[in-house]
Design a protein around this nucleic acid. Structure first.
Lengths: 249, 249
DNA sequence: GTAATAGTGTCTTTAAGACACTATGTA
DNA sequence: TACATAGTGTCTTAAAGACACTATTAC
């Protein structure tokens, strides 16, 4: 058996005759945050056709030697000016040949979560081609579908298949809430249990039982009480907690 | 604003200067089945370097106009001779730049499930470069890691990063068992509750409570009793069930 | 009849939900 | 003081686990 390494070109042409019509690979980013009991996603305004003027998820092509998550973090830094620790995970790969009318572009969608005030500070340094749109999903529980987005109460439509990517992101974060401690990613380092419950209710789009929520969260040993209280709230202040393995933010 | 459509070449060269060094995109397939209380995966023997002679997951490049799931089904037909209805879902996209030493190949891994006897019939028509290897995973519950594979009790190592792809597949199917009716995908059209429980125990690699399992499965309304009994079993025969929405197999 | 597994009934345990009650800050 | 929300204690409910018991077929 011939074990002499082929050159990359030999390999590709022998294995993949369509080497010169390979798909492009991009990363699109669903950056979610929660503010005032609303789920919000970062969008950027498209400057070029197709869909020029429409809002879209931030994205970009993957470098030839760049890991997928590195591309996602590069886009996170470029479009949202977020550099430090940010929750990020791969979501799903969208590969419909017609999803981009110009060419075959396969998009490896990623989900990122960041707390609202940190995001606002970062976006202050951004051009005004970005916005935080409200995200609404009508479907409950385990079902799924596209997400609806609006700005100042007015519905907006997204470029390409981005409403489906956003829908997949909402489904993912709803599912993860049940078994993974991710709510704190959307809050400042110290927060009250009520604030965490608000985040859960916003994401799930339904009320959650206060007693059971407190019992479950505290029993899970994921939070650490600080002993300090919130201030200036006009009523009895709640105790502040931190996430236990404080690699957070 | 110029709204004249660019040609694809103009678009790609302006947007993606590295057009001529784009990654290749492949699909790798984790085809799982269960037989005699063992989880098994379809492997193919590599004929070419690197890793010539090693076992690997079946895979192939994605056509320029081919949807990702279509590529997965094409590979399913080519490597396992499976053509009809087969459970298939996208798993995860593996994009480490060094995962293939020859070139940048991004792999969109897919998970497929099929019942053992149907698979054996299909594989009868296959060359002997395929095998069904035993899959073992040591990590329990929600944790994860690479999978171990063995043939006739002897450990085998897989090509590329395929042990990690296989590990992700086992994690996925374990998670899905908790909320989705997928066990029946691994059984013939009619099966006993005990057989379904065996499948669950094999995948989860732990015993499951018989009473609770029966109650939960029957309450979920996913199964339909046939009224008929299994035969020739040497003891009291169990009733045969079918999956309710019998799009199955 | 015995062996072996199928299938049922019921008690215990665990976690969620309901709800009333007390606690403690601001105004 | 009133008010609003924080936080606790306990009862109810739902589902899982434990376990004993009956049922039915092969032999």
């Amino acid at each position: 058996m011939n074990t002499t390494p082929l050159t990359e070109l030999e390999f590709l042409t022998s294995y993949d005759p369509k080497i010169y019509s390979r798909p492009s690979v991009a990363v699109d980013l669903v950056l979610l945050t929660v503010h005032e009991r609303k789920l919000k996603a970062l969008l950027v305004k498209r400057g070029e056709h197709p869909d020029a003027g429409k809002w879209s998820l931030p994205g970009g092509f993957v470098g030839i030697d760049e890991p997928l998550d590195a591309a996602a973090r590069r886009i996170l830094a470029a479009k949202a000016h977020l550099n430090g620790q940010v929750f990020l995970e791969q979501l799903f790969t969208f590969g419909d040949p017609k999803r981009d009318p110009r060419a075959r572009v396969i998009s490896v969608a990623h989900l990122a979560l960041v707390n609202h005030s940190r995001l606002l500070r970062a976006l202050d340094a951004s051009p005004d081609t970005t916005t935080l749109a409200d995200v609404e999903v009508s479907w409950p529980g385990e079902s799924a579908g596209p997400a609806l987005t609006s700005l100042d109460g007015k519905p907006i439509s997204l470029a390409f298949d981005h409403k489906h990517i956003l829908g997949a992101a909402v489904k993912r974060i709803r599912g993860k809430l049940n078994y993974a401690p991710i709510g704190y990613q959307l809050l400042p380092r110290e927060f009250t249990l009520r604030a965490l419950q608000d985040v859960h209710e916003t994401i799930l789009n339904r009320p959650v039982n206060k007693d059971a929520f407190r019992r479950r969260i505290l029993a899970s040993d994921e939070l650490r009480a600080t002993g300090r209280l919130e201030e200036e709230v006009g009523h009895r202040p709640a105790e502040l907690y931190r996430f236990s393995s404080s690699a957070a933010v």
